[in-house]
């Protein structure tokens, strides 16, 4: 019983970052119809920024997260302006190929800049875990969970309540009519890509100190992000949030009770099942963004 509770707690904490990883990707697909293969690299970029800011530069651990997110948004905006803005109206295959190219280029650039050696980031939390009854969890993971939750809620607020968020939803629902309202479609695209990128960078910056930072870390993160987004239905923010938690629970329980060697395989097995039986995702609904 205690073991089960511990697994459930671990899954919940992992689920927060998975959800964060998922909503960034689903937002970009939902609004821009772009399958963002650079998502995992932005995650890795966030982790590397965290490393560079905290370790050699000695910036405050918490400030570094904010700066890493801002840099992630900046990199996202740059990708959008350099590549995607030229591809408006191009078919989805062309965009996908270009994004795959960007993915490879970014990953190799990371390897060039930081070499292939895995790096670790110190965190300011006590090394003793937080113990509640039979359960224990590291302080850093508790921090990661609550920041992820805060960012998810912030994204919901942004999309549903702010002027910018409403313009994003309008643009996604009806581009030409949104233009008739005076919305600058190009800027909305850049802002959306920057936002999705900042969320990916945040996930990387949060998890970098939990694990180690390496140039290929983005690959598994991207694969999982796609799994989460498929679980929730493409373009569905609520679905991606729930999808993140479901993937975490499946992985954690699968690893705990079946085989820990197949931890990462569990999620993909789930995706195969979902694609076979419910190809539009678990939470398919008409509204995609919002």
């Amino acid at each position: 019983m205690d073991q089960l509770l511990q697994h459930l707690l671990n899954a919940t904490i992992l689920g927060g970052t998975y959800a964060l990883l998922g909503i960034g990707l689903t937002l970009i697909f939902g609004i821009m119809r772009v399958v963002n293969f650079t998502h995992g690299e932005l995650y890795a970029f966030g982790a590397y920024c965290m490393y560079a800011l905290v370790m050699p530069l000695g910036l405050n651990f918490f400030m570094a997260l904010v700066v890493a997110m801002a840099l992630g948004a900046l990199l996202g905006a740059t990708i959008e302006l350099l590549l995607l803005s030229r591809l408006r109206g191009a078919d989805i295959d062309t965009t996908m190929l270009v994004m795959i190219g960007a993915w490879i280029a970014l990953q190799n650039a990371e390897q060039l800049a930081w070499t292939g050696v895995a790096l670790s980031i110190n965190n300011p939390f006590p090394s003793e875990p937080l113990i509640v009854g039979p359960l224990s969890v590291s302080w850093n993971r508790v921090y990661v969970f609550f920041v992820a939750l805060l960012l998810i809620l912030g994204t919901y607020y942004l999309i549903n309540r702010t002027h910018l968020g409403k313009a994003m939803r309008a643009t996604f629902q009806d581009r030409d009519t949104a233009a008739l309202m005076g919305i600058r479609i190009d800027r909305i695209h850049t802002a959306t890509f920057a936002l999705g990128s900042a969320l990916a960078a945040a996930a990387g910056a949060l998890l970098g100190p939990v694990f180690v930072v390496a140039p290929t870390m983005g690959d598994l993160a991207a694969a999982k992000a796609f799994a989460i987004v498929i679980l929730g239905g493409l373009g569905n923010i609520k679905g991606a949030t729930l999808g993140g938690f479901i993937l975490a629970f499946v992985e954690e329980l699968g690893a705990g009770y079946i085989s820990s060697g197949y931890r990462d395989a569990m999620g993909f097995l789930l995706i195969i099942l979902i694609l076979l039986f419910r190809p539009t995702g678990l939470f398919a609904q008409k509204e995609r963004v919002g």
Binding site: H163, K166, A170, Q173, T177, A178, M181, G182
Partner: peptide, 15 residues
């Protein structure tokens, strides 16, 4: 805008 409320649609009108 089908998934936005009536009020939100009007808000878009005075964007």
């Amino acid at each position: 805008f089908p998934y936005m409320t009536v009020t939100e649609n009007l808000e878009m009108g005075c964007y």
